[in-house]
Nucleic acid binder design. Structure first.
Length: 118
DNA sequence: TAGGTGACGCGGT
DNA sequence: CACCGCGCCACCT
């Protein structure tokens, strides 16, 4: 359960108009090998709340989770609504829209997790 | 308890 | 660019 909460915390920090990858989020969770679980966690939280799951794509920029949204095009529409270009094959340019995180960001999150005991 | 299943990632050819 | 294979791990049957 801890892991799911961490995923939620991190996703809410993804800037408007940017996208993050599953592996990147797993890394920020201090669980570098749990990329798959990130997708699983988001799937459980969908009917949840304010988690911008549409800003999460795979490491190639493809919207691999589009199928979990109400409508297959929903994730794409949401991103386009944030001025993020999405190709017809459901792909975004990570060079352009990727959320760049550093080691310091990871430390910041680590501190937040410790403070909140998650 | 054992095995199947993914909203994954990386390296190789 | 296109495959392919293997590693990974929490969650279900």
């Amino acid at each position: 359960m801890d892991f799911y909460n961490r995923v939620g915390v991190i996703c809410r920090q993804i800037p408007y108009g940017k996208v993050a990858t599953y592996g990147q989020i797993a890394l920020l969770c201090q669980k570098p090998r749990n990329a798959r679980q990130v997708g699983y966690a988001l799937n459980q939280k969908v009917d949840g709340e304010d988690i911008p799951a549409h800003r999460v794509v795979n490491h190639q920029g493809y919207l691999s989770g589009a199928g979990a949204f109400e409508h297959l095009d929903l994730q794409k529409k949401l991103l386009e609504g944030e001025a993020v270009e999405v190709s017809q094959e459901q792909r975004v340019d990570l060079k352009k829209y990727g959320w760049k995180t550093s080691l310091e960001d990871a430390y910041d999150f680590q501190r937040i997790f410790e403070e909140n005991k998650i």
